[in-house]
Simulated assay, not measured.
Amino acid sequence: MLVYIVRRLAGMMVVMLIVAAVVFIIARVVPGDPAAVMLGSSATPEDIAALRTRLGLDQPLLTQFLIYLSDIARLDLGESIFLNRPVAQALAERAELTGLLTLMSVSIAVLIGVPVGILSAAMRGRWIDQSALGLAMLAASIPSFWIGLTLIKYLAVDLPWFPVAGYGPPDAGLAERLRHLVLPAVALGIPNSALILRFTRTSMLDVLGDDYVRTARAKGLPPMVVILKHALRNALIPILTVIGLTAAVMIAGAIVTETVFGLPGVGNLIVSAVLRRDYPVIQGALLVVSGIYVLINLTVDLLYAVVDPRVRY
């Protein structure tokens, strides 16, 4: 296990190096002078030249990239141009909102996808199964921002049960914060529950026809015991995989959802940084999100051995 973890961590370093290079290149191939965009139309050529020198944009690209890598090695993500603070601090201030939103969204997706997927597999070919598959395809086809706008219209405007937007006043407690995240979490969780539902159904169908399941039924065990104790545990590995991938995707999906609901999270920060061409924030945020994505995949791989003792690394 230790050797496997060391190898995976080494592989993660290679992946993060590639991500850093891609982010660095993408941020600099966008047309236009970033210094001129940052300072606006009223900036003088002297101001633009001074900012380019400050950002190191007047140096060769290879030199800029090496400086960028050395800063990352020291866990220095740079300083935001517009926020006038370290990028790590700006991300940390918004990490709570995005983390809670992602956790709530994943919980909703799992609470919908896994039970309905199990029920659909147990009722294969019946109207419940067909209805579940149809609703899953419908949920996967609807964009999260449309669901968000619809929820705002009916549950925040017509029926003022939830806040329209925002994250509450600065002194709001956890309960008030979570209340502001209910609609965004539902808007993000429903479309992603479709994939979990379909994977759960497929994985359950693969094991429900195995010999040990037929033996358990022949012994007279209750159907729920057969499904939940014998079949589900052996079907969990693909389900865990898709849940981990869904959680990682939701971090990226939170960008659109946070924009729709006016939430001051990491996604909103990235959108603002892109519009302002704030290089340090764009690079730092994408690097952190990529790192979280890789860590989630590693965690899911390690959970395989917990779920199924037959798995050996």
Rank of each mutant, 00 (worst) to 15 (best):
A252Y: 11
P184C: 09
T246N: 02
G253E: 09
D76Y: 01
V306S: 09
L269G: 02
I251P: 03
G40F: 00
E46L: 10
R179V: 05
I5E: 08
A254F: 04
T202V: 12
L302M: 15
V294L: 14
G125P: 11
A21T: 14
R7A: 14
V249L: 14
L135A: 13
G284F: 08
G40T: 00
A285N: 08
T53C: 00
L83K: 08
F65N: 13
R198K: 14
G166M: 08
L75E: 03
P191L: 03
G11C: 08
I239A: 04
Y293M: 11
G117I: 03
G32K: 06
G134M: 06
S42C: 00
A187E: 06
L174G: 05
L77R: 04
Y313D: 11
V186K: 00
P160I: 01
P170F: 10
N84C: 00
M13G: 13
L149V: 11
N192L: 10
L197R: 02
A139I: 00
P34F: 04
L135G: 01
P222I: 01
D206I: 09
D210F: 00
V307Y: 01
V87H: 07
P34E: 06
L303E: 07
V281W: 09
I243F: 02
L61N: 02
V274F: 12
D58A: 03
V306F: 12
T241F: 12
A73T: 14
S41F: 03
L75Q: 07
L269R: 03
V207W: 08
D206N: 13
G78C: 11
L51R: 13
T53K: 13
P170C: 02
Y212N: 00
T202Q: 10
R276W: 07
V307K: 01
R177G: 06
W161S: 05
Y279V: 05
I152K: 00
M123R: 15
S42R: 12
S193P: 04
G284W: 07
L205G: 07
A165I: 11
V30M: 14
T246Y: 01
A194G: 07
T63I: 14
A254T: 08
T246P: 00
I239R: 03
L62Y: 08
A216M: 08
Q283D: 13
A235N: 04
V256H: 06
V289C: 05
D171N: 15
A218V: 08
L208I: 14
G166V: 04
L151C: 07
R28Y: 11
Q283G: 11
Y212E: 02
L275V: 06
A20E: 10
A187G: 09
G209R: 05
T200F: 09
Y167S: 15
I25W: 14
A185P: 01
D301P: 06
F24G: 11
G99D: 04
E258C: 06
I118N: 01
L9C: 13
Q64D: 11
E46S: 13
A73D: 12
R310I: 05
T246S: 11
I25Y: 13
L302R: 08
A27L: 05
L138W: 01
A121H: 00
V29P: 02
A49H: 07
G78Y: 07
Y68E: 14
L119Q: 01
A43W: 00
V3R: 15
I296Y: 07
T44E: 06
P163W: 04
T44K: 05
L51K: 12
G244K: 08
K229R: 15
A252R: 12
N192T: 04
L181Y: 04
A218P: 11
V14Q: 06
